[in-house]
Each structure stands twice: as C-alpha cells, then as structure tokens.
Write a protein that binds this DNA or RNA. Structure first.
Lengths: 192, 192
DNA sequence: ACGGATACTAAACTGTGTGTTGATTATCTC
DNA sequence: GAGATAATCAACACACAGTTTAGTATCCGT
C-alpha cells in the first residue's frame, strides 16, 4: 500500500536534492533560492512547495536521511560488536567508510559553506559516539578542563575529517581511523 | 583634514556594525537583510547604501578592522619578543587577551552561525602564527600525515577558542594559553 | 490497457526586500 | 554664520517568495 512511492515523487525529490547538494559546493545554504533550484532541474516552483516548505526543509530532509542511515548502520554494527569485543575501533572505521560512501553529500554539508546546524549535529554525535569510547581513558581533572579537552578533540576530529573530504579521500578509512585514534589517545606531537 | 571623520558618518557606521553583530548572534549572516539592520537603528536604507554595497561588505569592514588591530598588536609584540626570547607563549597569551577584549564581535563571528569565510581566515592565521611556533617540534613524518596533524591541531584550537567565548570567558588568557600549549605539545590524553 | 487517482505545469497575484535616484532637510566643519 | 556634506524621504523598477487556479501528464492497480 504505502511501500512503493510514486515514481514522480521520487524523481522530483531526487532532482531537488541533487540540485541543492550541487549548489552548496559553491555558495552558502541560506543564499540559495527556491527559484534557482527549480530552474536547475526544470521543476515548477509550485511543485517544490508541495514537497518542502522552503530550502531549509529540503536540506533537513537530506540530513535526516543521512543520519537515519548512519544510525541503522551503527545499530547493526554494535550488535555484532557485542559478540566479538576484540576490535574497539571497528566503529570508527565503519564511520569513515560511511563518510566515504556518502562523500558528495557529506562534503557539501561539512565544507566551508556547509550547514552550521548539521556540523553542530555531527559534533554532538562525534562527542557521544566516538569520544564516549575513550572517556574512561581520560584523567578526570576538574570538570571545566575536561570540557576544553573535549572541545579540542571534537573539533580536531572534525578538522581531520573535513581535510579528508576536501583532499579527495586519498587515505583509506582504516588509515584515517588509525591516525585519529592515535591522535586522541597519544596526542599528536612527537618531539624531535 | 582627513583625520577627523564626520561625526555623522562615524555614528552611522557604528550603529550599523552594532546592529549586525547583534543579529549575528541569532541568525546566519546571509539571511540578515539590509532593511532589518536599518530598522533596528533607525537609519534610512539609502544611507546604508551610501556606506556599504551590501551586508557582506559591512561584515567585511568589521573583519578587516579586527584583523588590522590584531596585526598591529602582533607586530608590536614581535618587536619586543625579538629582544627577550625567554617566553615563547607570550604571543599566544596576547592573542587570547585580544579575543577577550573583542569578545562580543569575535563571539558573533566565530559562533555557530558566524561567518565561515572569517573562520577560515582565522584558521589560516592560527596555522601560520600559532603552529608556526611549534613547527620545529613536530616529527616530520610524511607530508600528508603532517597535513592531518595540522588540520587536527588548528581545528582543535579553534574549538577550544569557541568554547571559551561561548562559556563566558571564565578562564584567564594565561590559563587558556597554558592549556592550549600543553594540548599541542604534549597531547590531551592522560591514561589512568 | 483502461480509468481513476495523483503529481506536475503554467500562469496569475500579493507581498517583501533590493538597489537606485532626486529633491529636501539636518548637521558638521571651518 | 556660511558653505559643504551627510542623512532623510518618497518613489521607482525589479526579483524572489509563497499561494492559488485550472488544465495536463503520468502513474498504479485490476
């Protein structure tokens, strides 16, 4: 009944999403107009409004889809992980693989004129999912200092991630996970 | 002749800058209209256009002023530094002091819906001025790895900085400089 | 492959912000 | 105080935002 959506709907939404992702490479989200997206993919402007209330809503639907996929992947992974506890950074590798597979969208969302709200969302996610794994390894210190530690690590991780996306994914997800893990647990600086 | 600018001009520009900084706390730059800024401070819209071509130009003038101040401060500082080479993090302390003094503007520019272009500008700056000091302390590794190291450190530093601005500047510039220096040179993680 | 349902189109219309202009008024500088 | 300059006011054409209408094309189930 509900399962198969109308092809026309699927097509329209797909085209609009592609157009938005494409534009986001060039300019900030909030300066992208409904008109230019519709012109781009020959969609009537009225049609746009029958699917989304505005550009922000279109963007949100893209982000939600991405996060839903991610959540699903992680849920499945942590089920497997329950059994074999031998590789703690498996989650991180999976994360980088996910990013690589959705590189076009992720790059658009996380690049310089990406969506700050989405970046913040990822930031919270990284803090919970990634740093959570290492939380027990950090010395407590006072609470305030730990806040700064986390701010440093989360932003640092995001920076690496952005650099990876911008520089054409030349490293493998495994290499990225390994390097990031090292930075977090052992620090970056090696004295001469 | 040129030195004392017309009071009216000064007043208009000051009001517009204040209005923009105020709005930037609430919404993204590119969604701020000329009209709402003019309404905010009772300035005729025509007057706005006799000073700036658009909102982006107004923003740019604020950023340029800030950077000019910063450059001047650093130039003066490095002159002193030439003589007494005993305290390598003096520059960093001065940087945090500068940020605290211009906290309102900096918070607006660097917060979640700040200006990505400005954030990038600061990023480049941090990389040159701050990390340059420690460059000799990093093991070389291959070039690519160093790129990731720098991406990690620069973004991490920015993250700490943003957290500082957002959390009401509860630490002193000295404490911030000390902590950041430690993170960069020794890493963050202390194993239990 | 037909027929009802539904998504899309085309074209209008109102509303709001943009960027500019020219005449007028207020304010500054000397 | 006089002349210069900046700000105001009102009106302009223009572009995009949303919404609505009637008409057309496409899809889906049987």
């Amino acid at each position: 009944m509900k399962q198969g959506e109308d092809r026309r709907v699927t097509r329209t939404r797909r085209l609009l999403r592609q157009a938005l992702v494409k534009r986001m490479r060039e300019k900030s989200v909030s300066s992208i107009t409904v008109k230019e997206l519709c012109d781009e993919c020959d969609i009537n402007r009225g049609t746009f409004y029958s699917h989304y209330s505005d550009v922000a809503a279109l963007l949100e639907s893209i982000e939600n889809d991405l996060f839903a996929q991610l959540q699903q992947m992680l849920a499945q992974l942590s089920a497997e992980e329950m059994l074999s506890r031998n590789n703690p950074s498996r989650t991180m590798v999976a994360l980088f693989e996910f990013l690589r597979e959705n590189a076009d969208i992720c790059a658009a969302l996380l690049c310089d004129n990406g969506d700050p709200a989405f970046i913040e969302r990822v930031r919270v996610f990284v803090r919970r999912e990634v740093l959570g794994e290492w939380r027990h390894m950090f010395s407590d210190g006072d609470g305030e200092r730990q806040e700064y530690t986390f701010a440093f690590l989360v932003s640092g991780s995001m920076g690496m991630l952005q650099h990876w996306l911008e520089s054409g994914l030349t490293l493998t997800p495994e290499q990225m996970a390994e390097m990031l893990t090292e930075f977090i647990t052992q620090g970056v600086a090696v004295m001469r």
